[in-house]
Design a protein around this nucleic acid. Structure first.
Lengths: 371, 371
DNA sequence: CCCCTTGCCGAAACCGGTTTCGGTAGTTTT
DNA sequence: AAAACTACCGAAACCGGTTTCGGCAAGGGG
């Protein structure tokens, strides 16, 4: 039957000839499996000389333990889980490659691997996540795109599985996280615009369900306060997460009786919509209307003028998240695993001193539409 | 001791309380583990009634087999491996999210998962790959970015581990693949430019190590032949994989005594360099010089004029690769797992009838530089 | 009525590791 | 010198599944 099986052309799984097992190492040295196992795992009841002999022999024979064979007893598969939501259009395209690179690199330092899965929507993410938990495909999870109320967090917390968030959430109990201080970015953006001479500065937030949207609004308001500008609720547009929504948000803001001369955006993609709107309204970005956003998407660099924005180092984020999650899995309490990193400003051409006052801008827009 | 362990604050791995095992299911029904196992895995020597009782009980108790527990005996971890090379700048940024989405989606249909890793260079990819093979982290691998001479292929072939390529390679023995017919794209691009009236059509290939570069050059030459245009080796530039190289390749081509009025590019990013070159030389893309490329990167849509290119459906590619690899792992011979998909043309503004002849273009460039 | 199949399932080995439990030899204490 | 430790390692159980082997009962053929 063996022969028949082989003749079907079926590959016999990996490593056709039987690999070297712990028993082989043990036999080679005339000790038992248990001794080898304890020696290799650093148990204290193994003589130093023995440990050395064993690790040398393991090296020489090319022994590599099978993580899934270990897992059956230890319950650790040495893998980090990552469930991504890939939805239409937006999603974190450029972000992804570097982020994954960071995660995998940090993980492989400890000889861990990444188990990755995707889903279309929140529902799908939850289902996929619990499937991975049920089948124990990973020892812990990295949660990107955290929401103020996050069902994933509650699920994992309830089931007592380790996780770390890329972002923050409303209820921090039991949570570890790494995040970029988007609030600082928006504070800086606002004060920067103010010091350029802008008096009416608007903000287009991200989706209300995301924690970062709330934080960035706070940063915007802090910036206003620091610049001594009164907060005007009219200058906060409805949420915009993509080009189209950014376009209409911009138009709405410019249609105000006292339009802003500068707009801050929670996300770059929405800011790119402002370019469309400006073009349609015959305004020039960086002259008639200034823009600062956040994310650092590559398209921003090729826009005309270049989009001034805050870049996030997603590679570093991936690295930190992976190493922190491994620590978490090894027992470090979540309260000790919380890190915030600063965003970095990338100055391009979209933010300049205002060429017109708000009133002049309003006037120009009015006469123009009358044509 | 249990208590002491728990009190360290260490999370006890996943699923704190002991999960339901195959033994639980067996005991619940008063049968043995072996019966349950065979029933659930569709062995023929289990009565239909029994199989039904067992699968119902498994469902009711919420039994999910641990893939790593199965793996220890079966040698199958139900996971597909993917080692990505993430190098500086270029790399397949936008491609990645959709590709991964496709792969994971197809894999999860069969309840398989993806184990992903990254490396900086070819050397690193090979090392990572063999580590994953040694530790049997995946049952098979998807190889993107295939080279004419691909060390990964040789390694995997030698070790008899299943794999499938995204792309083709010089020696196809034992290889399964899925690929987009880039040669067809370049053939179409060339004949299209010819029918627009272009007589001098150039080509800027990709890196010579990639299989697709060779194929696309062949497609270009086929297109020339079909259009009845003589092949001129001068019109094949040195390889260009990014904006900067595309810029200088374009300049070199335009500096020829008989410059091309149209240029085809193996990759979009290089074509975007032509926009820079054109701008610097005071030429207009889509008027003085036409361009068609290949890849479908998002920046191409925002270039001015939009870049005419061939889009690859990387999500579909991921799906096909995953399902084909699973078939391969299950024993389908590689010769039966070879698929080629057509690219789709995206018409934008970069390809138009020539405004000037080659001679006129040369004249203009000469006088211009003289200024 | 006996023998031989066939269908179905239990018993036990097995996969490759980890971990518990003792046991032996050497060393220290009394 | 006997007793009590200590350091080190072997024997065996164990983890959660899969797979081999064999046995029993029912059915069919002679």
């Amino acid at each position: 039957m063996q022969a028949a099986k082989a003749s079907t052309g079926a590959t016999r799984g990996l490593g056709g000839r039987s690999r070297v097992t712990i028993a082989d190492v043990a036999e080679d040295l005339g000790v038992t499996k248990s001794t080898v196992s304890r020696a290799l795992n650093g148990y204290p009841d193994i003589a130093e000389a023995t440990r050395l002999r064993i690790s040398r022999a393991a090296e020489r024979l090319g022994y590599r333990p099978l993580s899934h064979a270990q897992a059956i007893r230890t319950g650790r598969v040495r893998s980090l889980g990552l469930v991504l939501q890939i939805d239409n259009e937006d999603s974190a395209r450029p972000f992804l490659a570097n982020f994954i690179a960071g995660v995998t690199q940090a993980a492989s330092l400890e000889n861990w691997t990444i188990t990755i899965a995707t889903a279309e929507d929140e529902q799908g993410v939850r289902e996929t996540l619990s499937r991975l938990v049920d089948e124990h495909k990973a020892d812990g999870f990295i949660l990107p795109r955290t929401l103020l109320q996050d069902a994933r967090v509650e699920t994992l917390r309830a089931q007592n599985v380790p996780f770390i968030m890329f972002g923050r959430t409303a209820d921090p109990t039991g949570c570890a996280w790494y995040d970029i201080k988007g609030e600082d970015a928006l504070r800086t953006a606002t004060t920067r615009l103010a010091s350029l001479g802008h008096k009416r500065i608007a903000h287009v937030p991200g989706g209300a369900e995301y924690t970062y949207s709330k934080l960035r609004i706070e940063g915007y308001r802090d910036g206003l306060a620091a610049a001594g500008i009164a907060y005007d609720p009219e200058l906060i547009a409805p949420p915009a997460m993509n080009r189209r929504a950014g376009d209409s948000a911009t138009r709405a803001l410019l249609a105000l009786p006292e339009p802003p001369t500068a707009i801050t955006f929670a996300v770059d993609r929405a800011a790119l919509g402002a370019y469309q709107a400006a073009h349609a309204l015959n305004l020039r970005i960086g002259a008639d209307i200034s823009v600062i956003a956040y994310d650092g998407v590559p398209e921003g660099a090729y826009a005309n003028p270049g989009l001034t924005t805050f870049e996030v180092n997603s590679r570093q984020a991936g690295e930190r998240l992976a190493t922190m999650l491994i620590e978490r899995i090894r027992g470090t309490p979540p309260e000790e695993l919380r890190e915030l990193a600063p965003p970095t400003l990338v100055e391009r051409g979209s933010d300049r001193p205002p060429r017109l006052t708000s009133a002049a801008l309003a006037e120009r827009l009015k006469t123009q539409t009358n044509i």
